[in-house]
Every structure is written in structure tokens, then in C-alpha cells.
């Protein structure tokens, strides 16, 4: 450790967030494992490990690669506290992150700042609770809601919530960050349309190159 590292200390708030996030995250992880464990043991339906270890390993590797990219990409946007919250409940890119940045914009707070990180935690918490409550409501109202949510007439609308969300996010944000949007847009078009890749594969490259491009612009005083 050099002297620069020694002089650096996380704030009390950050330290407390990490402590709480690590402890409760670990408990949540163990609780999640309890679900298949109890089901297997209580009903004597434990699958043969020799049969499932291969797909398990495959899924573990794929998830590890994607989640490490996201773990690097999200802290500068929503802050480390919101990252802990999002990793317990999932749906980061389609719910938590859009909710956090839009709430910050409405409040006139810049994301990536100490204030932004604190307020993001409130927004991410609210969206966790909203979807938690809606899922319970959905289960209670399963019978009356099924014909509506699965109706053929409304299917195109429900099928396209995510395209609508991403169009909306892009329209809202690219106007502010247009200089920084050019690189990832180009990479996205090349990756998706020319190389036929999915977003998960493009994202790591897009993330690195977008930051490098921004760094160049920043050094030339064209950004920030």
C-alpha cells in the first residue's frame, strides 16, 4: 500500500453501507439457498448432483461474467448502497436504475455525487417495494387478472414495455450526454446489427470504450 492509499478513507456513511450491505447480503444469499435445500430434503426429491453439476457450473460461469460487468458499471451511476439493494432484488437495468436516475433528474440532483447516491437508495427502495407489492397483488388477483394481462388484444402493449422504457430513457438522457452517447451507440449498432451479438456481450466493451472516449474528451476540456 502506498502513501496515497493510506491517506484515503471511505466516509462513515460508505463504511456503514458496506458493512450493512455485506452482512444482510450474505444472510439473504443463505436464505435463498434454503429454498431449494428445504424443498429437496423435506420431500425427498434431492436431484443427483452428478447429473446437475455441469449445467450448474455453466450457469454459474455465465452469471459471474455478466454480473461482474454490471458490478463495475453500476456504482458510478446509482452508488454502492443501491448496488447492494439491487443485487438482492434483481431487475437493475429494467427497473431500479431507470427509477433511480429519473427520480434524481426530477429532484435536480446529479447522479454519481454523494447526494445522488443517498437519494438513489430511497428511489431503489421504493421501486423494490412497488414491485414486491404488485407481485403479491398479482398473485391474490391471479384469477381475475389473468384474462387482462394475457389478452391477445393487449399483448403487443405489454410485450413492448421494455422497448418503450429504453426509448424513453434514451430520449430523456442522450440530449444531456450526447457527446458521450456517440461511442456506445456506434458500438451497439456494430455489435447488434453487423455482428449479431446480444447486449450482454457488447456491454463490457461498450463500457470500457465509452469511458475511454469520455476521458479523452474530458482531458481536452470538452466535457465536465
Amino acid at each position: 500500500m502506498n502513501s496515497k492509499d493510506k491517506s484515503f478513507a471511505l466516509s462513515d456513511f460508505d463504511r456503514s453501507v458496506h458493512r450493512f450491505g455485506r452482512v444482510t447480503g450474505l444472510i439473504a444469499f443463505i436464505l435463498m439457498l434454503l429454498f431449494p435445500l428445504v424443498a429437496s430434503v423435506a420431500f425427498d426429491i434431492t436431484p443427483d448432483i452428478r447429473l446437475i453439476w455441469q449445467p450448474m457450473l455453466y450457469i454459474a460461469i455465465v452469471m459471474a461474467v455478466f454480473s461482474i460487468t454490471e458490478l463495475i458499471a453500476y456504482p458510478p451511476i446509482i452508488g454502492s448502497g443501491s448496488v447492494y439493494m439491487s443485487y438482492v432484488t434483481g431487475n437493475v437495468s429494467n427497473l431500479k436504475m431507470p427509477c433511480a436516475i429519473s427520480s434524481l433528474k426530477a429532484a435536480g440532483i446529479e447522479q454519481g455525487t454523494a447526494e445522488g447516491n443517498a437519494v438513489s437508495m430511497i428511489a431503489v427502495g421504493v421501486s423494490t417495494i412497488v414491485s414486491l407489492v404488485l407481485i403479491i397483488l398479482g398473485l391474490i388477483l391471479l384469477v381475475p387478472l389473468t384474462p387482462i394481462l394475457t389478452s391477445a388484444a393487449l399483448k403487443p402493449a405489454f410485450d413492448n414495455i421494455m422497448p418503450a422504457l429504453y426509448g424513453g430513457l434514451a430520449g430523456t438522457w442522450m440530449i444531456y450526454y450526447w457527446k458521450q452517447a456517440v461511442t456506445p451507440l456506434l458500438l451497439g449498432v456494430i455489435g447488434v446489427f453487423l455482428l449479431g451479438l446480444t447486449a450482454s456481450y457488447i456491454l463490457p466493451f461498450s463500457f470500457v470504450l465509452a469511458i475511454l472516449a469520455s476521458r479523452v474528451l474530458y482531458k481536452r476540456k470538452l466535457l465536465g
Binding site: M97, L169, L185, I211, S214
Partner: peptide, 16 residues
């Protein structure tokens, strides 16, 4: 600035 770059990478890639 870095935060904006990360955000644009996510939004642009998923939108495309």
C-alpha cells in the same frame, strides 16, 4: 463524467 459514460453505455446498448 465517468458516471455519464457508464450510463450511456448501458442505455445505448440496451436500446440498440
Amino acid at each position: 463524467v465517468l458516471s455519464g459514460a457508464a450510463l450511456m453505455a448501458l442505455i445505448a446498448t440496451l436500446m440498440v
